[in-house]
C-alpha cells in the first residue's frame, strides 16, 4: 500500500493535462515542431509519424527539456512555455527519452531511487515507490544488479521504471517498446492501460499495431504539425484497399501520411 497525498486526490483545476497552441520548438536551428495544436486528457495517446516528423522534439518540449521557441504550452495547468517556474509541472511529469545515459555502476534500484529524489519525492516514500516501479516493469529479480550488466530490453524497462516512479500525471514515453520481446510488449501494453486510469500517457512509436492495441487516442504528426487526432477505429477508417500496409491500421496510417504530404489535413 502506498500513501496517497492530498494533492493527488484534489480535483484538477485545469481542463487539459497537456495543452499546446501553435507550439513551435527548435531542434538545433531547425524548427522541428512548427505551429502544433494539441489537447490531451487522461488515457493512452499513441504518437505516430515518420522519422524526422518532430516526435522526439515534441516529447522533449512536453518534458520541459526544451523551451518552446513560440506558441503556448500548458502542462497540468502550469504555463511551461515562458520564463516561469517549471518545478510544479516537473513534479508531475515522467519522461523516458529515446536513449538515456546513466551511471553504469548504479544498481537498478539506486538508479530509480536517484531519479525519484531528483523529482523531489518525499524521502521516506522513495524506497517503496522505487520497489513498486521496479515490480511493475518486471525487473524485481534484477533490482540489485548493476545497470551496466543489463540487456537492452532490461535497460528500457529500467528507464520506464524511473519514468513512472513518481506516479506522474503526465507520462511521456519515447519509443518505449524498442528492445522488448513480444511477451514483454504485451505486459507493457497492460501496464500502459493500468497507468492511463489516472494519468495522461503519451507513447511515441513506429509500431502502428502497438498503438491500435493499447491506445485510446491516436496522434499523428508530420513536418512538425498534428495531422490527425482520433481513436484507432477512425485511423483504420481512413485506409483504403489501395493504401500501403499489411493491416487496416497501417493502411490508415499510410493514407493519412499521404494526405498530409499532399497538403491536406485530416
Amino acid at each position: 500500500m502506498r500513501t496517497i497525498s492530498a494533492a493527488e486526490t484534489a480535483p484538477a483545476t485545469y481542463a487539459w493535462s497537456v495543452h499546446a497552441e501553435q507550439l513551435k520548438v527548435k531542434a538545433g536551428r531547425h524548427l522541428a515542431v512548427d505551429g502544433l495544436d494539441l489537447r490531451m486528457q487522461n488515457g493512452v495517446h499513441g504518437l505516430l509519424g515518420p522519422n524526422g516528423a518532430g516526435k522526439t522534439t515534441l516529447m522533449r518540449a512536453l518534458a520541459t527539456v526544451l523551451r518552446p521557441a513560440g506558441g503556448k504550452l500548458t502542462i497540468l495547468g502550469q504555463d511551461v512555455g515562458g520564463r516561469g517556474n517549471l518545478r510544479q509541472a516537473r513534479r508531475g511529469l515522467g519522461y523516458l527519452p529515446q536513449e538515456f545515459g546513466f551511471y553504469p555502476r548504479f544498481t537498478v534500484r539506486e538508479f530509480v531511487e536517484y531519479m525519484a529524489w531528483l523529482k523531489e519525492m518525499p524521502k521516506h516514500t522513495i524506497p517503496g515507490a522505487a520497489q513498486r516501479a521496479i515490480e511493475r516493469v518486471g525487473l524485481t529479480t534484477r533490482a540489485d544488479a548493476r545497470m551496466k550488466t543489463l540487456s537492452g530490453g532490461m535497460l528500457r524497462r529500467a528507464g520506464i521504471a524511473q519514468a513512472i516512479v513518481n506516479n506522474p500525471l503526465v507520462l511521456l514515453l519515447d519509443e518505449p517498446t524498442v528492445g522488448l520481446d513480444p511477451e514483454q510488449r504485451l505486459d507493457f501494453r497492460e501496464l500502459l492501460r493500468d497507468l492511463a486510469v489516472d494519468s495522461c500517457v503519451l507513447v511515441s512509436t513506429h509500431l502502428v499495431e502497438d498503438v491500435v492495441a493499447a491506445c485510446t487516442d491516436v496522434l499523428m504528426v508530420n513536418e512538425g504539425r498534428l495531422v490527425f487526432q482520433g481513436d484507432a477505429n477512425t485511423l483504420i477508417d481512413h485506409g483504403g484497399p489501395n493504401d500501403a500496409g499489411d493491416s487496416p491500421a497501417e493502411r490508415g496510417y499510410s493514407a493519412l501520411l499521404r494526405r498530409a504530404r499532399n497538403g491536406g489535413v485530416a
Binding site: 518534458a63 527539456v65 516537473r90 527519452p97 523529482k119
Partner: peptide
C-alpha cells in the same frame, strides 16, 4: 553534469 542532461533537466530540484 550528470550522465543524461535531458533527464537532469526534468528534475524538479532547485
Amino acid at each position: 553534469g550528470g550522465h543524461d542532461d535531458a533527464l537532469d533537466r526534468t528534475s524538479a530540484l532547485r
